[in-house]
């Protein structure tokens, strides 16, 4: 295909991506370097019989005018990045000096909003991803053994948790785990504790969110693995069996190596998707006990006074996180590509 033809074919798609993905990233960086204008202070001198006093008042009108004229605010450099709401350099170094133990240091760190969100996001990403892969593989192995008549309906039901709107899916589960909902009541009965509530403690909230994450993503891994299982070479399975391999050994040494490329693919997609975990926190109203990076950006934009600069700084830090997460994959692809070219 000629370069010019290629260019015209790709242009609309490329323009959309540049305008609404690349430029917003630039906009986020610019916003994060600015901060809202300070209030305009007017100093007036009141002179009475006992001498003069200076009085400062906020000129609300002038402040509003200035802020409306320059909504971006004034240039603030990197100061937003290091304030208490983000990297909190001062607080971190204080926590480092005042705590002799790692435990105390991390406890202090966890009280800072950015680190609190980061710790949940990372825990969620790196626990849910492997659990999704394992559960998806088990379901795929199970469904693969079913009678053909049962396979269709089973796959239909299995797809439901995945295609459901994330906010709606988490709401459905949230209502069920409510202390007065069906799962909440059952758990109270199981543990003989009428006060048990999954919403009360941070640990239980984290577990609930991760259970939701596995529930909603396992079908994706299942479908991919299931398709992979259809292409397992039956000759190698038979050979393994003749050599005396047990069922477990067949899976371990024939099936799993065959599925390995799919594991890489699922991990890549899952790492990207889990890192932006957001809707479950809204659906489960879990913000008191668990926040994610995406959630604190949302909260900054939703608050009464939209904190553009704060949301933007968190966004930039999140994008850096995504870049670190993707770096190994991109490096590998690049090496493969170079290897192919040579």
């Amino acid at each position: 295909m000629r370069h010019q033809t290629f260019f015209w074919f790709i242009l609309p798609s490329l323009a959309a991506m540049i305008l609404f993905i690349a430029l917003p990233l630039v906009s986020v960086v610019v916003q994060s370097l600015h901060i809202e204008h300070e209030q305009v202070i007017v100093t007036t001198e009141n002179c009475g019989p006992f001498g003069c006093t200076e009085e400062s008042t906020v000129d609300t009108e002038a402040t509003a005018q200035l802020r409306a004229k320059q909504p971006l605010g004034r240039f603030a450099g990197l100061s937003t990045y290091f304030d208490r709401g983000h990297l909190a350099s001062a607080e971190v170094s204080e926590a480092w000096q005042s705590n002799a133990t790692w435990g105390g240091f991390f406890a202090d760190l966890y009280n800072l909003p950015f680190y609190k969100a980061l710790s949940f996001t990372l825990t969620y990403t790196f626990l849910v991803t492997p659990l999704v892969i394992v559960l998806g593989l088990l379901i795929a192995l199970g469904v693969n053994r079913l009678k053909p008549v049962l396979k269709g309906p089973t796959i239909f039901v299995s797809l439901l948790p995945m295609i459901i709107t994330p906010l709606i899916g988490s709401l459905i589960l949230f209502w069920m785990i409510d202390a007065q909902g069906v799962i909440g009541k059952t758990l109270q009965w199981l543990f003989e504790d009428p006060e048990l509530s999954l919403k009360a403690s941070p640990v239980l909230t984290w577990i609930t969110l991760m259970v939701y994450g596995v529930w909603s993503s396992a079908p994706f891994a299942f479908v991919v693995f299931y398709a992979g299982l259809q292409t397992v070479n039956s000759d190698s399975l038979e050979a393994a069996m003749i050599d005396g391999a047990t069922r477990w050994q067949q899976i371990r040494y024939v099936v799993i190596p065959h599925l390995m490329p799919l594991v890489v693919f699922i991990s890549l997609i899952q790492l990207m998707d889990n890192f932006r975990v957001f809707e479950p926190i809204v659906g489960f109203s879990a913000e008191a006990n668990a926040t994610s990076l995406s959630y604190i950006i949302f909260a900054d934009m939703r608050s009464d006074i939209t904190r553009f600069n704060s949301a933007a700084a968190t966004s930039v830090l999140t994008v850096i996180g995504v870049a670190i997460l993707l770096a190994p994959v991109l490096l590998r692809t690049w090496r493969d590509f170079k290897g192919k070219a040579v």
């Binding site: 986020v28 934009m301 933007a312 966004s315 999140t318």
Partner: peptide, 26 residues
């Protein structure tokens, strides 16, 4: 073409809410 696909993959990984925070003010 290969590089465009790689860039698309990076764009695919961007959390949507970070893009939204870029749109809001403009």
């Amino acid at each position: 073409a290969f590089w465009l696909l790689m860039i698309a993959l990076i764009f695919r990984a961007m959390p949507h809410i970070t893009l939204v925070s870029g749109y809001l003010l403009p």
